[in-house]
C-alpha cells in the first residue's frame, strides 16, 4: 500500500525511455506508412470523384447531344411525312382535275351530239313536213284552184310549224 503512492524514479525513467523508443519506432514503421497511405487513398478517392464528375458531365453532354439528334431526326421525319402528304394531295388534286376535264369533255361531246342530232332531226322533220305539205298541197290542188288563196294558206301553215 505504501509503495502505491511512491513515485519510483527508476520506473519513470524506464517509462520515458520506453515511450521514446516506441514513438521513434512507431513513427518509422507505423505512423508514416499509415499516414502516407491514408493521404494516398484520400487523393485517390478525390481523383476518382473528380473523374466520375467529369465522366458524368461528359455523359450528360452526350445525352443532350443524342437527344438533340433524336429531335432533329423526328423533325426531319415529320417534314418528310408532310412532304409526302402534300405530294399525295397534289396527285389526288391533279387526278381529280383530270377526271373532271375528261368528264366535261365527254359531256360536251354528248351535248354536241345531241344538238347535232336534234338539228338533223329538225331538218329531217322540216323535210318531212315540207314533203307532207307538198303532198297536202297536191291533194288541195286537186280540190281547189285558187292558187293565190292556196299559197296564202300554205304559207300560213308553214309559219305555224314550230321552229324546233
Amino acid at each position: 500500500m505504501d509503495s502505491l503512492l511512491n513515485v519510483n524514479p527508476g520506473l519513470m525513467i524506464w517509462t520515458i525511455l520506453n515511450f521514446l523508443i516506441f514513438l521513434f519506432l512507431l513513427v518509422k514503421f507505423g505512423a508514416k506508412p499509415i499516414s502516407n497511405a491514408l493521404k494516398a487513398r484520400e487523393d485517390y478517392i478525390q481523383n476518382n470523384i473528380q473523374n466520375a464528375e467529369k465522366l458524368n458531365q461528359e455523359a450528360q453532354k452526350l445525352l443532350a447531344e443524342t437527344q438533340q439528334k433524336l429531335r432533329d431526326a423526328q423533325n426531319e421525319m415529320m417534314a418528310i411525312i408532310q412532304k409526302g402528304k402534300q405530294q399525295a394531295d397534289e396527285l389526288i388534286r391533279r387526278a381529280t382535275e383530270e377526271a373532271e376535264k375528261v368528264r366535261k369533255e365527254k359531256l360536251d361531246e354528248a351535248m354536241r351530239e345531241i344538238t347535232r342530232s336534234k338539228e338533223s332531226a329538225l331538218i329531217e322533220l322540216k323535210k318531212e313536213v315540207a314533203h307532207l305539205v307538198v303532198q297536202a298541197t297536191e291533194k288541195l290542188l286537186k280540190e281547189k284552184v285558187d292558187e293565190k288563196k292556196d299559197l296564202e294558206l300554205i304559207n300560213q301553215y308553214i309559219e305555224q310549224i314550230p321552229k324546233n
Partner: peptide
C-alpha cells in the same frame, strides 16, 4: 537510483512489442 526492470517495465515492453508488431504489419 533504482533502475531495476520491474514487472511494470516488462508489461510496458509487452505493450510496446505488441503494438509495434501490429503497426509494422499494418504498415507493410
Amino acid at each position: 537510483l533504482d533502475l531495476s526492470v520491474t514487472s511494470l517495465v516488462c508489461f510496458q515492453w509487452l505493450a510496446m512489442i505488441i503494438l509495434l508488431v501490429a503497426f509494422f504489419r499494418a504498415g507493410r
